[in-house]
């Protein structure tokens, strides 16, 4: 069964492998560029407060080179990989056999259906995990100075292209493809549905699943108007909201709202004589008026120190889904596929 799996799987596997190798090659070639720039800008080995400035300089210096191109390409590839694996590896795996009738040939060999699918699932998941894992871990290592300087690896966009989470997405997408192919019995339909499911999953994860997994910390602190803040208000109704970007470098800000002393979100009404287009005092007057409103900032955030903790949690959730869907597929192929 292993030979047969390899024989049927080798073309798509080699094609995907070639793409990954090209990216890995690009990362390998730009590795020295990243470390060299980090050293030259003084970011490597920096101490204390000097790091912030050195980091900025380092990121600036990186911008024009190949390194940043490959950085973006590798992140893009890690987002694209699950969709590709689901569509081109997973969806046709069973659907094509059902469509062309060859399942009747392979099921009349001396191999049970369960084992047939189990070997194929294991091979596909293994290859997907290997490909995604290799690229992701190499990228994580490669981008270590960049992530250190930008303190951005908790950013939802970057988070799913670092560490072990990409392995979870790739294997889950593969099994989603297999299961839809098994249920729909049509390759093209299975490919379309798989694409839809994988993309929805990738969109839903940072908004719904990750905050729930991460259990963000919530803090309430008196609102200080010494940093950057934004005001939006409607001059007719006096409805007003205040947006403050909390200074939490390296943390993932899940939500940040301005609340009143009762705990409800602050929505005005604004004192039209102090704030707005008809007020004469300008920005200063409005700020001092706001300062007297007893406002607080409620921030819900996930500390950057929980990066690997959250990586493992999300990977665990994806892995559990992969196992559940695999077991369902195995049950279906044995009991229901006729």
């Amino acid at each position: 069964m292993i030979w047969m799996t390899w024989r049927q799987f080798r073309t798509p596997a080699l094609a995907t492998g070639t793409l990954l190798l090209a990216l890995l090659g690009g990362l390998a070639l730009t590795w020295s560029e990243v470390t060299q720039l980090a050293r030259e800008t003084g970011y490597t080995g920096c101490q204390g407060d000097a790091c912030r400035a050195a980091g900025e300089a380092f990121l600036q210096a990186l911008q024009p080179g190949w390194a940043s191109e490959f950085h973006i390409a590798a992140i893009g590839a890690l987002y694209l990989l699950p969709a590709l694996v689901g569509i081109f590896w997973g969806a046709p795996l069973v659907a094509r056999e059902l469509e062309s009738g060859t399942y009747r040939m392979v099921f009349s060999q001396s191999v049970s259906r369960g084992r047939w699918l189990l070997v194929k699932l294991a091979a596909g998941c293994g290859a997907a995990a290997l490909g995604a894992g290799l690229l992701s871990l190499v990228l994580t290592e490669w981008a270590q100075p960049i992530d250190g300087a930008s303190a951005d690896r908790m950013n939802p966009l970057v988070f799913a292209a670092r560490g072990i989470v990409p392995i979870g997405y790739a294997t889950l997408a593969f099994v989603v493809g297999v299961a839809t192919g098994l249920l729909l019995r049509r390759t093209l339909a299975a490919m379309a549905v798989t694409l839809l499911v994988v993309i929805s999953l990738q969109i839903a994860a940072p908004f719904v699943v990750r905050p729930w997994l991460a259990q963000p910390v919530t803090t309430v602190s008196p609102l200080q108007f010494d940093g950057d803040y934004g005001i939006s208000m409607s001059p007719d109704t006096g409805r007003m909201t205040v947006h403050v970007q909390p200074d939490r470098r390296g943390d993932w800000i899940v939500s940040s709202t301005t609340i009143t002393s009762t705990g409800a979100e602050f929505t005005g009404p604004a004192d039209m004589t102090q704030c707005g287009p008809r007020a004469s005092g300008g920005r200063e007057a409005c700020q001092s008026w706001l300062g007297k409103q007893n406002l607080s900032l409620k921030v819900s955030y996930v500390p950057g120190s929980k990066f690997w903790d959250l990586q493992w949690r999300e990977f665990g959730a994806l892995f559990a889904l992969t196992v559940a869907l695999s077991l369902f597929s195995l049950w279906w192929v044995r009991r229901r596929l006729v």
């Binding site: 009738g101 009349s108 001396s110 191999v111 049970s112």
Partner: peptide, 17 residues
């Protein structure tokens, strides 16, 4: 059961890969 070594089967339209 499918996968039995005792029984061989050639399906209608003789599917091959």
């Amino acid at each position: 059961v499918s996968g039995s070594p005792q029984v061989g089967f050639v399906a209608q339209d003789t599917p091959v890969y």
